[in-house]
């Protein structure tokens, strides 16, 4: 590096250090205040980033859950009507009707805390105190047999509390069906050896019968 470039580089670096909140190209917007960032930045990551100070026990969680969650999710996380099932379903993922719950499916506990904290109770989002969210999360762990009934969850022991299905998530492997070279014509004639037969017809003719409820998984 020439002497000139080197000194120019140093000068630029110093400039960057001197003005960390340098205006952007268009000089639009204003710097957020610390209080504004704190008010909105509530997200939690699996490594614990974002967790607030706090703690809560299974027993405390059970009380809050009974009052604020059980009317939709059921006393034991079994789900009322089509509301999400939160507990159980262990060893069901390979079955014809998998039951995907916190205990059977979710990879990270941080997802439970984050979601309860940002979006629950349904219709009264972001009304829970951190200790309440810790307590509800502890109770959900207990409902899923991940912790004992005397467990207390806190910021300190959060990251080492793991969910059983964490290792079963894998990367996207698509495309997992044929790709042809660009410009190649796909099969156009006699692509199936025999005349094609109908093997099944739509089960739901008017789209809204009750029986269909039992035959399909919830989209929510």
């Amino acid at each position: 590096m020439s002497k000139f470039l080197k000194s120019a580089f140093v000068a630029l670096s110093m400039l960057a250090v001197a003005t960390p909140a340098m205006a952007g190209k268009f000089d639009l917007g204003r710097e957020a205040t610390a209080a504004e960032v704190a008010a909105w930045d509530i997200d939690i990551r699996p490594d614990g980033q974002g967790l607030p100070e706090g703690k809560g026990t299974v027993a405390q969680g059970e009380e809050i859950y009974a009052e604020k969650c059980a009317s939709c999710h059921g006393d034991f996380g079994e789900g009322i009507d089509r509301w999400p099932v939160l507990a159980g379903g262990q060893d069901s993922l390979k079955s014809e009707r998998p039951v995907k719950t916190i205990g059977s499916y979710w990879p990270y506990l941080s997802t439970v805390f984050d979601y309860v904290n940002r979006a629950m109770p349904f219709g009264e989002a972001q009304s829970l105190e951190p200790d309440e969210v810790y307590a509800i999360t502890a109770y959900l762990l207990n409902l899923n047999d991940v912790v004992d009934s005397d467990f207390e969850l806190s910021k300190q022991n959060f990251v080492k509390t793991r969910l059983p299905n964490e290792a079963n998530f894998i990367a996207d492997a698509r495309p997992d069906t044929p790709v042809v070279a660009k410009g190649t014509e796909p099969c156009m004639k006699d692509c199936k050896p025999d005349a094609v037969k109908i093997t099944g017809t739509a089960r739901v003719l008017d789209v809204t019968p009750d029986e269909a409820k039992k035959q399909t998984g919830s989209l929510d």
Partner: peptide, 8 residues
């Protein structure tokens, strides 16, 4: 972040 809509 592994939030609900990319895990559950």
């Amino acid at each position: 972040w592994h939030h609900r809509e990319e895990t559950s």
